[in-house]
Design a binder for these strands. Sequence first.
DNA 1: CGTAGTCTTGAGTATCCTCAACGAGGGTGG
DNA 2: CCACCCTCGTTGAGGATACTCAAGACTACG
Lengths: 226, 226
Amino acid sequence: LDVSDDFTGIQRWGLAAAVADMDLLASGTSYGADEFICAADQGSQGWYRVLLGAARCCAHLADGRRSIIDFLMPGDLFKVHALPAHRICFEAVVTPTRVARYTTRELELTATRNRAVGSEMLDAEPRMIGRLQTHALMLGHASAIARVAAFLLEFGGRSASPRGDSVVLPMSRSDIADYLGIAVESVSRALTQLRRDGVIGFRGPKRVQIAMRSRLEQLGTLTPVA
Amino acid sequence: LDVSDDFTGIQRWGLAAAVADMDLLASGTSYGADEFICAADQGSQGWYRVLLGAARCCAHLADGRRSIIDFLMPGDLFKVHALPAHRICFEAVVTPTRVARYTTRELELTATRNRAVGSEMLDAEPRMIGRLQTHALMLGHASAIARVAAFLLEFGGRSASPRGDSVVLPMSRSDIADYLGIAVESVSRALTQLRRDGVIGFRGPKRVQIAMRSRLEQLGTLTPVA
DNA sequence: CGTAGTCTTGAGTATCCTCAACGAGGGTGG
DNA sequence: CCACCCTCGTTGAGGATACTCAAGACTACG
């Protein structure tokens, strides 16, 4: 599966304006799938931007389990702090994942020229807080189907797909499961049920067609467990 | 239960330095239990600090359910943004809850005099992100007992209790349940089991004595579901 | 075209939720 | 000062959802 067609960073809204500065495009490192990018410790402080592919913010637990806190899509600017809260690390999701790293000084300097960059720096943490809150809300009260439905809607809006009703999921089922806090099999079962009900369609395991968006929103918008 | 003895804001670490400025103590509004403080909309933008009691950051769902995203304890400085992400609102937990509100300009002005305030402003959002990440981790993979154990440890460290092994829970069981993403009865059952096992002790429903901290940490530190 | 990994499907079990009732504590009014 | 009531907290029984273990398809890649 060649996801590069669907995840061309330039197509992302917001990114186009910011990367007009060639400085921000200059430094970019390519990573393979599941490759380590950086961690939340002293050495990796700074700002990062996903240019291509997708990255995950995850925590590896002592017992071998893994929790995915957030997915970073092309255009997403994120800051890595030195807080050793829970050994958070960032990893690439797909093989062609390109991530740029900037020092704070470098980014602030660019912000003086490009107002869009400064705006992005100010909005980066509020946006992350907003995503984390939405995520916590989903993890709190939601059945398996509600979680999967909300996930599809979230990435239907965030992914770089040209059509609004076509969603490409670059991450594996295992990634989705660790993000939604349910088992891999539960993800698969929920997707199958949605397909059976005609809510979504498949063109390969990673290409989802949203057939009945209103129904999906109805399911994903915090339906009670019962 | 008079929690004012245990939640005197002055005793909170970090707060002592910041509130040395009388300006920051001057404006403070008192709230009763369950009283509305502010919401994440255009009108309530700004900075807030819990001086006394406790506050909760929660989201009321369409079906009547409620998710508590975070608890704010005395000394906690938090910012309310205008993001209409999920109708987030802040409410008082106990009857003597005092919250101060500052405009951004006012707080920045104070920061020029008091370096501790400036440091707090910079750390406010990373700290909130850290708490949200820890919360998401707990909601992802944790049994009911693990959640309650982690909760007790979290507030054993955050509350203003003089002794390290004595925790006062100002919030109701319902609040705890909505924070941990489980039912009220499950909270009660988990607490009872911990009491039966001799891990914790009670002096009233809201006063918890941690008898075996190592065991509690073992349970709360991300034990697998099985 | 073959192989390894991912995805799907099935059966059985455990955990948690729901509904329900009881007991305890605090506040109010007589 | 006492009695009442209301809310909160606890405990129990039954049922539903999701997990675990296991095996079979499909995809992607060499």
